[in-house]
């Protein structure tokens, strides 16, 4: 592929992907490895608001909410990062 073709392709792709979502905030993509559809032993995040997710993460981090594992993961994110993840997760509800 020539440089010219590559440039055109990148341009077309950026125009064409207007429907693509904005990139997920750091860490957010990992959640779906464990949290899936409702009904599993690990709770689903579907239907939770950004505030609910932020609050839960804060409680896991402080130890106020007992956990087997989420306490260890919640400590890896500061408040800004946690809120960004929560907002992104809440916005995913309508899309698969």
């Amino acid at each position: 592929m020539t440089r010219a073709r590559a440039t055109v392709l990148a341009f077309l792709f950026s125009m064409g992907s207007a429907c693509a979502q904005s990139p997920a905030p750091p860490g957010a993509l990992s959640c779906s490895g464990c949290h899936g559809a409702a009904g599993g032993e690990i709770p689903s995040l579907s239907g939770l608001s950004a505030d609910e997710i932020t609050e839960a993460m804060g409680a896991f981090k402080s130890g106020a909410r007992p956990a087997t594992l989420m306490n260890r993961l919640a400590k890896g994110f500061n408040e800004t990062e946690t809120r960004a993840i929560a907002q992104w997760l809440a916005s995913q509800r309508s899309s698969p």
Partner: peptide, 24 residues
């Protein structure tokens, strides 16, 4: 997932942000 996001951005000529990843 992080790689897929980065590849899509690079193909658009954009620069991916620093990610965070998990393991369990």
């Amino acid at each position: 997932k992080v790689c897929a996001s980065a590849v899509a951005l690079l193909l658009r000529g954009e620069t991916p942000a620093s990610p965070k990843l998990l393991n369990t």
